[in-house]
Amino acid sequence: MSAVPPAGAPTTEARLLEIVFPDHTNHIGTLFGGTALAWMDKAAFIAASRYARRSVVTARSEQVDFKLPIRQGQLVETVARVVAVGRTSMQVDVELIAEDLLSGDRAPCTRGRFVMIALDGDGTPSPVPPLPDA
């Protein structure tokens, strides 16, 4: 579990929940890879925006690994964490965790890293604060 950051400290994490409906799946009843990537990018966007308190855009997605299929009817928790920052960029690790709603069994299924760039009001890359000490 993540602790609540002290007042004024940047928030480094975002969590989203989705349910896998039939329109999210391929012909064998598992989550489309493109849908998984969209959910991951959305979570990375939210985590980076909350951290920087600026508009952000995706610069890159790296090393997305699909380890286990996510099936129709499963709940998916998407967890995004800002893990490193540059001058205007943020690296965000994102994980998809599938949960069976009836049994409660959970399993990490997909991981990836996204690089997000903070922008000012003119759309120019803008500095972000350093990560707080852990």
Rank of each mutant, 00 (worst) to 15 (best):
K42F: 09
P132I: 00
G34E: 04
F66V: 13
Q72R: 13
Y51I: 00
T110P: 06
A48G: 13
L37F: 07
E77C: 07
Q63C: 06
A48I: 02
P10M: 04
I70E: 13
G34Q: 02
R81L: 13
P10V: 00
D41A: 09
F114P: 05
P6K: 13
D122G: 13
D105G: 07
A44C: 07
L101T: 14
R111L: 12
A7G: 00
D23C: 09
D120K: 04
T88L: 03
T124I: 13
I19L: 15
E13K: 14
D120A: 03
V85W: 00
L16S: 06
A48L: 08
E77G: 07
G112F: 03
S103Q: 08
T58R: 10
L96N: 11
A59I: 11
Y51R: 02
R60A: 15
T30D: 10
V92W: 09
P10G: 02
A9E: 15
A52M: 06
R50D: 03
I97Y: 02
T88H: 00
I28G: 07
V82P: 03
L119S: 07
F32W: 14
V79C: 12
I46D: 05
A38L: 11
P129E: 08
D100C: 03
D23W: 11
I117A: 04
I97W: 10
Q63S: 14
S126V: 00
V85K: 01
G34N: 01
D133C: 01
A52P: 04
T78A: 12
S126Q: 07
L101P: 13
R50C: 03
R50Q: 11
F32I: 11
T78S: 07
R54I: 00
A98H: 05
V128T: 01
G121H: 08
Q91S: 15
G86W: 04
L131G: 00
G104I: 06
A36F: 12
E77H: 03
L16K: 04
